[in-house]
């Protein structure tokens, strides 16, 4: 049974109340200026983080315990929010968010291994995750093949393994990352609510744009990697055939035009694919935020808040680790998102 607009009223109330308790930028500045980790922890004890922080406080404070406390807090808040939305959407939202996080983490690990990063460095970049043990094991893999083998018991193994030869041939991670993306979009089929379907379409479009532009940059034919869905479905073949500037021109007439253009100029300046992708992804976050304002009684308010909470937890993690290593306040402010 589809959820009506009024059914999100309770979730909206919960999320609004939680938004008021988010740590704002000004407070993060103050936290950056605190003299020690203990001060930060004492501050957190007076916030919503109290139940988790309480458990890790003792004569001394272990940084790993603190980090896992922050993660547990996120999971608790996430679960309470999901249980407040209408039942018909719960499973769908859960699937969307947990798949997103998993795939993101897998990609980060793959890239790290591909570029020969140390496992600890890879771990630092990872997002909040559920299967901690498996993920930590995977960061230790010595090669992409080992990584894929480590995923043997999961649903990702087969899709990745099939693309392994292509990866070896091209020396480019694109086929593997793309197969993860395709698998993710596949698993999101059949969502009930109109809003979530729209979200899936936009995510598909963003993935397609990213794939096509990346292929053009690395000079790889993009035909196999495109997902034949989403709003841009009709324009896909046209974009495939053209050059980068043609693609941007076609996109100019859509809502993605601005983001695509800025992402490309980012890339041209920094030659970093990471910032290029970040710029495209930030478009999705803006979409969620704007729609949360236009229609507060809907799933986008919830998704927008979950993103904001993720950001807060990540920033707190940064502050805590930096305080532990005595990083000066100005540098901390730079790193914060």
């Amino acid at each position: 049974m589809k959820a009506r607009e009024g059914d999100y009223a309770y979730a909206y109330g919960v999320v609004s109340g939680m938004t008021a308790k988010l740590i704002d930028d000004k407070t993060f500045d103050e936290l950056a200026r605190f003299r020690s980790v203990e001060e930060v922890v004492a501050f957190l004890e007076g916030t919503d983080y109290e139940p988790e922080i309480k458990k890790v406080v003792g004569k001394t404070i272990e940084i790993e315990n603190l980090e896992s406390a922050l993660k547990r807090h996120f999971v608790r808040i996430y679960r309470s929010i999901v249980s407040s939305i209408p039942e018909s959407d719960r499973k769908d939202l859960n699937r969307i968010i947990s798949e997103s996080l998993k795939v993101e983490n897998l990609k980060i690990i793959m890239r790290g291994i591909h570029s020969g990063m140390e496992p600890e460095k890879i771990e630092e970049m990872l997002d909040i995750m559920e299967d901690e043990e498996l993920i930590t094991e995977l960061t230790k893999a010595k090669s992409v093949e080992e990584f894929i083998a480590g995923l043997e018991k999961t649903e990702y193994h087969d899709v990745l393994e099939s693309k392994l030869p292509e990866y070896k041939e091209l020396g480019n991670l694109l086929p593997l990352e793309n197969s993860l993306d395709k698998h993710m979009i596949d698993s999101w089929r059949g969502v009930v609510s109109k809003d979530l379907r729209r979200f899936v379409e936009i995510k598909t479009d963003t993935i397609n744009i990213r794939t096509i532009l990346r292929c053009k940059i690395s000079d790889i034919p993009s035909k196999d990697y495109i997902i034949e869905e989403g709003h841009l479905k009709d324009k896909l073949s046209e974009m495939e055939r053209g050059e980068v500037k043609d693609v941007l021109e076609i996109l100019d007439r859509t809502t993605y035009g601005k983001a695509a253009k800025e992402a490309m100029s980012e890339y041209e300046k920094t030659h970093s694919l990471i910032s290029f992708e970040k710029r495209l992804e930030s478009d999705i976050l803006t979409f969620l935020k704007e729609n949360a304002i236009l229609r507060p009684l809907g799933v986008f308010s919830v998704m927008s808040f979950i993103n904001a909470k993720r950001r807060e937890v990540k920033n707190l993690n940064t502050v805590v680790i930096c305080k532990h290593y005595d990083v000066p306040p100005e540098e901390i402010k730079e790193i914060l998102m």
Binding site: F34, R35, E38, E39, V41, A42, E45, V57, I61
Partner: peptide, 24 residues
Amino acid sequence: ERDRPLERVTDISKLLLRIRKVID
């Protein structure tokens, strides 16, 4: 410049955490 909290706040925070744990 902006001033910073007094140095002894670290010790106070440590004591505060410990006391709170006992209270808890």
